[in-house]
Amino acid sequence: MTTTDSLVDRPATSPAFQPISGGRKTKNLFATVLVTLAFLLALVPLGWLLVTVVVNGFEAITTSTWWSHSLKGVMPDEVNGGVYHAIYGSVIQSLICAIIAVPVGIFTAIYLVEYGRGKLAKTVTFMVDILSGVPSIVAALFIFALWITAFGFPKSALAVSFALVLLMLPVVVRSTEEMLRLVPDQLREASYALGVPKWKTIVRVVLPTAMSGMVTGVMLAIARVMGETAPVLVLVGYSRSINFDAFDGNMASLPLLIMNELMNPEAAGQLRVWGAALTLILLVMLFNLVAALVSRFSAVRSK
């Protein structure tokens, strides 16, 4: 198109393209600006939060004892000790949870994709949706009411794991279900046509095909429950020293340690709070990273 200096210079013929009215252009521009601003707006708290945690937590996690010691015998105002007892607690509680939730979740997804028909399947789908919306404090209360009040067991890391199962289960079911549905029916048919029974078709053909996606989903689910605080507040006592026994006694975890040190008015307490927060984020990121790596490298080899 030619650029024109004034209306007079314009050719008398109508332009080749119909012009867009100014109002429409303005609206379009306005929408573009708003939408972009919305995205940038979300980056503000994210950046602010991450920078805060890293800046405040860096000193603590680089102390020599942070990763190898507990807080046993460390005074509230003493900059010393570490959080390995809490890291152990967070990891072991999540892993015990995964040991229960992953098989049940995978079997539920198998039911929904491979077997489920009619009313029961609809009910299960609905309940998985509902379970994914159950607040963590309600899950914790339920386990308290069931395991501690009704059955009379003491508070323990195991009880925490049970509550986490309720929170992890829907995540595992969802991601596994999605992966199983991606497996083309042609593969199942090919297997049946070879005279392979249904269960073996699922175990040897369908699951391996969906495996990397399922592992990714499980890793993300573990990362998610690791940061849960409500269950540890309700279901296990805090300990300043290491406890390896998930079935008995108090056990620290990173969220629980943060909650306790928040009540410590000393500067050392602040230091530990931010250090533990950074440690927790790093731990969660580690599992996210593993998930990303798994999905990248073990995706179905095509060449």
């Binding site: 042609q186 048919e189 053909v205 095909t209 179905v300 080899r301």
Partner: peptide
Amino acid sequence: QQPNPFPT
């Protein structure tokens, strides 16, 4: 109809 080798 569609070739369906097991991808894994």
